[in-house]
């Protein structure tokens, strides 16, 4: 699948796709077909031509990857819901610019639900 969807520079009208991995942990994987790792090709730019950032990735995941309808367990008022940490290449997204971080080829984005049990 990776081979056939790789970007083809000759077709300039097509949006460039960038390969990333998105991981879910702490129970969030339940909302994403019980699959912890998703290898995705996402459009490098959004519909307004702006580079894809974490905010647009969250929208993309809701539209394309999340089969469970309980969106409110992942997003709240268009932002990631409280109690979910976002890690960009294993670092807290607050160290990287949060929602505004522009996604790079090969990035790993991890969503972790904070646990409280014991």
């Amino acid at each position: 699948m990776g081979d056939t969807t790789a970007s083809t520079p000759t077709m300039t009208a097509e949006v460039e796709m960038i390969p990333i991995t998105v991981d879910f942990s702490g129970g969030l994987e339940m909302l994403f077909s019980n699959q912890r790792r998703h290898s995705l090709e996402i459009p490098a730019t959004d519909k307004d031509g702006k580079p894809c950032n974490i905010a647009s990735l969250i929208g993309y995941l809701c539209e394309n990857t999340m089969k469970d309808p309980r969106r409110e367990l992942f997003v709240l008022d268009d932002h990631i819901r409280p109690g979910i940490l976002v890690l960009i290449n294993d670092a807290d997204w607050e160290l990287e610019g949060e929602e505004a971080y522009e996604i790079q080829r090969g990035d790993n984005i991890l969503f972790v639900s904070t646990l409280h049990g014991g």
């Binding site: 129970g27 409110e72 367990l73 709240l76 819901r81 409280p82 109690g83 979910i84 940490l85 807290d92 639900s113 904070t114 409280h116």
Partner: peptide
């Protein structure tokens, strides 16, 4: 500092 807000009650 690490977990600024709790999850909404009953979220998971």
């Amino acid at each position: 500092c690490c977990f600024r807000k709790p999850p909404p009650a009953g979220s998971m």
